[in-house]
Simulated assay, not measured.
Amino acid sequence: MTRTEEQQRKVEEAQRIIGRDFDDPDILLSAITHPSATEGKPVKFSYERLEFLGDSILGAIVANEAFHEYPELDEGGLTRIKVALVSGTSLAEVAEKLGFADVIVFGSSERGTGRRGLHSALENVYEAVVAALFLDSGIAGAQAFVRRTLIPKMSVEMAREPENPKSALQEKLQEEGITPTYKLVETQGPPHDRTFVSQVFAGMKALASGMGRTKKEAESQAAKTALDALGFTKASKADKAKAKREKKQSRTEKKNKG
């Protein structure tokens, strides 16, 4: 595929950031190309399809790393670590520090709006790069990149409290042997300024829906709404913790009197 001067320069800079020369640079070019730069072209020329693949690969790599790093943690703790580490905020922060903001290929419409979706683009490009590495050099290439750039953020503290509503909802539903699933039900707006609507399900039952500027944000909002609807709010958790403390204090007082 013939590349423009800008595209060639950004592919070379992306390879420098990643620390690898791609056998197929066109895969990397797709991974760093915003949908606004491919209007009228097949979807394969932007990061959208690669983002889908990268999300799954990234989740597997992070799960594997957490599983081996923290053998003392149960499923709930490992889930909290994974959800926190692959959150949109986490990936966008890492991508920005790496310098990906300067290599994303935006279309003219996005440049004219001041890059409103930069945070979302950074998150998506990170996932797309993971997929591009997987396709170009196998799981080892993707794993090396994630280990170098994302895994250093991993810590056992992430396992102690749910970092977001998705983790909290998963913990609660798994107590009943249910794993929540999410489905994108609607996409609104032009490619450079999208709004996503997602639903969360418990089995075949739809629990709630949520809206956000990214797919992950929409899922997070859906999970939050579901938690509220099911009564798993922060307030109820606080009440339970207070009741537990009072019960413990009562037992201690009885023991001292005895």
Score class of each variant (00 low, 15 high):
Gln8Tyr: 12
Arg9Lys: 13
Val11Met: 02
Phe22Leu: 09
Asp23Ala: 13
Asp24His: 13
Asp26Gly: 04
Ile27Arg: 13
Leu28Asp: 11
Ala31Cys: 13
Ile32Trp: 04
Ile32Cys: 03
His34Cys: 07
Pro35Asn: 00
Glu39Ser: 08
Gly40Met: 00
Pro42Cys: 08
Phe45Leu: 10
Phe45Val: 15
Arg49Ile: 13
Phe52Ser: 11
Gly59Thr: 08
Ala60Gly: 06
Ala60Ser: 10
Asn64Ala: 08
Asn64Val: 00
Ala66Asp: 01
Phe67Pro: 12
Glu69Thr: 15
Pro71Trp: 00
Glu72Pro: 07
Leu78Gln: 03
Leu78Lys: 11
Val83Glu: 10
Thr89Trp: 05
Ser90Val: 14
Ser90Trp: 09
Leu91Arg: 15
Gly99Ser: 09
Phe100Arg: 05
Asp102Tyr: 01
Arg111Phe: 12
Gly114Leu: 14
Arg116Ile: 02
Leu118Met: 12
Leu118Pro: 01
Leu122Val: 11
Glu123Lys: 15
Glu123Asp: 15
Tyr126Asp: 01
Tyr126Val: 04
Glu127Phe: 08
Glu127Trp: 06
Val130Tyr: 10
Gly138Arg: 06
Ile139Val: 13
Ala142Tyr: 02
Ala142Pro: 09
Glu157Ser: 15
Arg160Phe: 15
Glu163Ala: 08
Glu163Gln: 06
Ser167Met: 02
Pro180Asp: 08
Thr181Ile: 04
Tyr182Met: 11
Tyr182His: 07
Glu186Phe: 01
His192Pro: 13
Thr195Ser: 12
Thr195Lys: 13
Phe196Ser: 06
Phe196Cys: 08
Ser198Asn: 11
Ser198Gln: 04
Val200Arg: 12
Val200Gln: 08
Val200Cys: 14
Lys205Phe: 11
Lys205Cys: 07
Leu207Arg: 14
Ser209Val: 04
Gly212Thr: 06
Gly212Leu: 00
Arg213Asp: 02
Ala222Val: 00
Thr225Cys: 08
Ala229Trp: 03
Ala229Glu: 10
Gly231Cys: 01
Gly231Thr: 12
Thr233Asn: 01
Thr233Phe: 01
Ser236Pro: 14
Lys244Ile: 02
Arg245Asn: 12
Glu253Met: 05
Gly258Phe: 06
